[in-house]
Simulated assay, not measured.
Amino acid sequence: MIDNKSIHSKIRIAVIHALVILSGLACLLPLWNIVAISLSGSAAVTANKVGLLPVGFTVSAYKKILEDGQFWRSFGISVIRVILALFLNLAVTVPMAYPLTKSKREFSARNFYMNLLIFAMLFNGGMIPTFILVKNLGLLNSIWALVLPGALPIFNVILLMNFFLGIPKSLEEAAVIDGAGPMTVLLKIMIPCAKPCLATISLFSIVGSWNDFFSGLIYIQKINKYPIMTYIQSLSVDIQELLKNGAGSSALENVTELSNRNLNAAKIVVAVVPLLLIYPFLQKYLITGIVMGSVKE
């Protein structure tokens, strides 16, 4: 019977490994195909001949994106945006989450603010009122229009609050007995213990700020102030339009090497690379931060 259990256990483990490998390939192969398309010639892409290897190797799509001063300008704007958004998110989320871990006796307005956060998370004013507010504040065409509307992610506040609640109360009580005030407890005990959760919400902030292109379309009206995702989204190759506008032969020669699929694939690759460089440093905290911050025992 022991041998049978051992065999069943081995089979179960093998099946689990096979499912994990298949799931990984299901995520990896489409991305690999996109890389191959971005490096393939227009004719092969249009004829759907590109699989996992490039056909008619060319880097014309990347040249179209990278040989552009505006690309690097937009890239710099996005880097600044990510840094500002991350700083603001942490600077607002941490002091908002910590008081909500207190009891009603310690913080009488706790329930009011908690209900306010829940209501704001479920309901919002909508895109048009938000745009009017940003316009009235004079933030249009500035980087603050991309940062301030999302400065307080309520989901992150709740996640961090629940993580704080999972930290043993005895640590805080011991610090208070030793004479530590609320700010000392927060900076010396709660924040160091909450590193996994802070890394998780930092990853959420970085990915969200980097990938967001719609805010740039709404709040930025000058192309030289576009963030990278908005600028990449705005890039398109339309041969018919160039012909109508009487484009020169050199421009047409460059454009005919591309197809919309080539360029779109290159956009995806360029957009993913910075995130792939950051994710390995923070992914080890991701599961711990989400699990421990999602449920309070």
Rank of each mutant, 00 (worst) to 15 (best):
I2K: 15
I2S: 15
D3M: 14
K5A: 07
S6M: 14
S9G: 06
I16T: 13
I16Y: 11
I16H: 14
V20Y: 12
L22M: 09
G24C: 15
L28K: 08
L28A: 14
L29G: 13
L31I: 12
W32C: 02
L39M: 03
L39D: 01
A43C: 13
V45R: 01
T46K: 09
A47Q: 06
L52S: 02
L52E: 04
G56V: 00
F57N: 01
L66A: 12
G69R: 00
S74M: 12
G76H: 11
V79Y: 07
V82W: 10
L84E: 02
L84M: 03
N89Y: 03
N89K: 00
N89E: 08
K104H: 09
K104I: 06
R105G: 12
S108I: 09
N111G: 05
L116H: 12
A120G: 09
A120M: 13
M121A: 07
I128W: 00
P129T: 15
P129W: 03
I132K: 03
L133K: 07
V134H: 10
L139S: 01
L140T: 12
W144E: 08
W144N: 01
W144I: 00
A145R: 12
L148I: 09
P153C: 00
P153M: 12
P153V: 10
I154P: 00
I154K: 06
N156Y: 00
V157R: 12
I158F: 03
I158M: 09
L160R: 03
F164I: 06
L165K: 15
L165P: 05
G166T: 06
K169T: 07
E172I: 08
E173N: 13
A175P: 07
G179E: 03
A180G: 07
T184E: 10
V185T: 04
K195C: 04
K195Y: 00
C197A: 11
S202E: 04
G208Q: 00
S209C: 06
D212V: 09
D212H: 06
I220Y: 10
I220S: 00
Q221W: 08
K222Q: 04
N224P: 01
N224W: 11
K225L: 14
K225W: 00
Y226S: 11
I228C: 07
M229T: 08
T230I: 02
T230F: 10
T230C: 02
Y231V: 08
Q233K: 13
S234G: 00
V237I: 09
K244T: 04
K244N: 11
N245R: 13
N245C: 10
A247T: 04
V255E: 13
E257S: 06
S259D: 02
R261M: 15
L263K: 05
N264E: 15
N264W: 11
I268W: 14
L276M: 05
Q283A: 04
I287A: 07
I287Y: 03
T288C: 14
V291W: 14
G293T: 07
S294L: 04
S294I: 05
S294R: 06
E297F: 15
